[in-house]
Amino acid sequence: MSRWMIAALCALLGGPAMADYHTDSLFNIKGLAIGQADDQQGLTGVTVLRFDGGATAGVDVRGAAPGTRETDLLKPENLVDKVHAIVLSGGSAFGLDSMSGVARYLEEQKIGFDTGVAYVPIVTGAVLFDLALGDPKRRPDADMGYRAAAGAKRQGLEEGSVGAGTGASVGKIAGMGRATKSGIGSYSLTLDNGLVVGAVVAVNAWGDVVSGNTVVAGTRSEDGKRFVSGTDLILAGANGEGFAGRNTTIGAIVTNAKLTKSQALKLAQMGHDGYARAIRPVHSMYDGDTLFAAGTGEIEVSNINAIGVIAAEVVEQAIHRAVQAATAAGGLPAASDLTP
């Protein structure tokens, strides 16, 4: 997105026509802390976004094979209007266990809804399939989720093959043997009026990560030395091995804007434009693509469309950063290992 476009969006949002690009400005959002834990032998991990004071959240699931927890309560018509953590986890369906560990930690800290007999934290999240790399028997569990939640901090978010991105990979249209190692990435933007919009995305797509029409991480040639277009292979009749849910890109848009649940849902929906711009193909039968959106309520906003446009931009950039920061593992090279 060009600077003049950002300036125009700033004007629509009522602030000065300037914007500041950072990856760490995500932590300008008060009340947000992020923790990660992983197993480098199992090649799997967990990333926890904590909102100790609660955040209004929504979710949009577009892949055909999702694995999620507590997403129904995010629907605008349902009662609960705050979440205390969004969890991104590896381990496929087994990784859902990590979210119980997050809930246990938050309860111990008396974070959640005070029911009079117990503090009940609302923990939602999604999982991706990373069992094909590392040891498939070593999966995110409640203890790993607990450690990630306990270690949450407000600075220095690590990107690449860590946390939920530890075992992530992209470009599996020609099979796992020609895939590329991926990871988790973040990107955020701060406007001069104090509004922050950021994203954290663990990229584990069946398709390729692209910039325009150029594959920057994804399906590799038969000799493994360069990238080829998985889309072209599909059009030529290829059908990559796999089963439903063996991939999945999961992430969260976070802002300090004051949102209703309906507005949070709209942000998640518009944020999927970032998935579509950066991943090709996306939202397939083999993916469970899920995107959350959460607002902490610090800043009043009047133009949700403008925030949605920015949300799509930061999601796209977070996806690019995820593959740029990834390192080789499990027999797969990272994009940085291949000569352009």
Rank of each mutant, 00 (worst) to 15 (best):
G171I: 00
V48W: 01
I310L: 11
I184Q: 15
G330H: 10
A236I: 10
P136E: 05
E159S: 14
A329Y: 09
E241S: 14
D223K: 04
S161W: 00
L49S: 09
F94M: 05
P340H: 09
R154F: 00
G240M: 12
V215W: 00
G54D: 03
N193M: 12
K258L: 04
G242E: 09
I6W: 10
D143C: 08
G54T: 00
L74D: 05
I173A: 09
L96V: 06
A126S: 11
L267G: 07
E159H: 10
G171V: 03
P140K: 11
V323H: 10
G63F: 02
S25Q: 09
T327R: 14
G15C: 09
R3D: 15
G183A: 02
N78F: 04
D38K: 14
A118V: 13
A318S: 13
N239P: 10
F129S: 07
V127E: 01
I299D: 03
D38I: 03
A318D: 03
P16S: 07
L12S: 15
K258R: 12
I6N: 15
V254F: 03
I6R: 15
G218P: 08
A65Y: 13
K137A: 12
E159M: 14
G271C: 04
P333M: 01
A150K: 15
A335H: 01
G67A: 12
S262T: 13
S182M: 00
T231I: 10
D20T: 14
D135F: 02
A236W: 02
A335I: 04
R104H: 15
G175C: 08
G53V: 05
A11F: 08
T290R: 00
A268S: 09
G145N: 02
G134C: 01
G165Y: 10
V102T: 11
A329V: 12
L26K: 08
A17C: 00
A8M: 14
D135T: 02
V301G: 01
G151M: 02
G245N: 09
T68S: 13
L131Q: 12
D60N: 07
G330T: 04
V314L: 00
L195G: 03
Q155Y: 08
G194M: 02
V61I: 15
D232Q: 15
L9F: 05
V315N: 13
G167K: 01
T180H: 07
T23P: 12
E222T: 14
G297Q: 06
D52C: 05
V254R: 03
G331Y: 05
G330C: 04
D130P: 10
D192F: 01
